[in-house]
């Protein structure tokens, strides 16, 4: 009985891990096809962060932004997460600089001086999710600049 419980736990773990790895691989393809084109005419600076998020999750990235650079921030969620994914940008004193809620997930901006900012991606729960299962999907955070 003990062995069966162990097998069940290991199997469940493996299934979740396999699902997660598969999703990670799909993320790369999704990012290249659907997200990167949204950067144009900006140039990707090599900073692309992709991950799988569930409804109700959020994640924060700390990024350095340089003065005099023109940036385009693109937060690109998979359609499975609905259309209410948004992002917030705060400085390290937690002062809110931008909230994309209700706007597009693309923002062109500059910073007054070089500084670190926290970019938080928020995936709200979907009111029309009838499956009872939390949806998951790729979210890519891409930064572009004018060379």
């Amino acid at each position: 009985m003990k062995n069966l419980a162990t097998i069940l736990k290991v199997s469940a773990f493996l299934m979740i891990m396999m699902g997660s790895l598969e999703l990670e691989a799909q993320c790369k393809y999704f990012t290249q096809r659907k997200c990167l084109p949204q950067l144009a005419p900006y140039q990707n600076n090599g900073q692309i962060n992709t991950t799988v998020l569930f409804e109700g999750d959020s994640a924060t990235l700390r990024m350095t932004f340089f003065s005099e650079q023109e940036y385009r921030m693109v937060v690109c969620p998979h359609t499975s997460l609905g259309d209410s994914v948004y992002f917030k940008i705060r400085d390290l004193d937690n002062e809110l600089l931008y909230n994309s809620k209700g706007k597009t997930n693309t923002w062109d901006f500059k910073v007054n001086s070089t500084q670190d900012l926290n970019v938080s991606v928020i995936v709200p729960r979907q009111a029309n999710n009838m499956t009872g299962l939390p949806q998951s999907g790729c979210v890519s955070v891409i930064l572009g600049f004018k060379p």
């Binding site: 023109e70 004193d93 901006f109 910073v111 007054n112 500084q115 900012l117």
Partner: peptide
């Protein structure tokens, strides 16, 4: 284009 953030030297 909007410019945001603290002015840090």
């Amino acid at each position: 284009i909007i410019s945001v953030g603290k002015n840090i030297t």
